[in-house]
Amino acid sequence: MRVLVQSDPFDAAALLSGFGAGAGAVVTFTGLVRGDGGLVALELEHYPGMTEAALSDHARAAARRFALTDVLVVHRFGRIELGAPIMMVATAAPHRRAAFDGADFLMDWLKSRAPFWKREIGADGPGGWVAAKDADEDALSRW
């Protein structure tokens, strides 16, 4: 299991090299900065210390619940340009269903329980903080 919280861009191919060796299925999800409403970048704030602990706790919980053989979570903070990866999760399991479900579960949790806050940066500078979506909170009740 590996959890990375960093401001630098990450190299997905390098991180996934050897990930899940021996498993039957690997699922990866990567979230990118979307260009809504003239946005040119996102600025992500986080809670140093709590972020790493919370991500590790939840990666362990996902591994137990879905019998994952490996979990990777990488999440950036700071300024992230349009189109660039914000975060990635990868799960490995003997079969695909557990790998998909484990990744889905981790993503639903990350959206509304990991201590990150996004702010939109437009061409004219910093804009507003992104509001949490009810749909993201509702998604957690699936689990």
Binding site: L44, S112, P115, F116, W129
Partner: peptide, 9 residues
């Protein structure tokens, strides 16, 4: 710590 609802992912 006090903060708004989280918006990670």
């Amino acid at each position: 710590a006090f903060f708004p609802p989280m918006t990670g992912g």
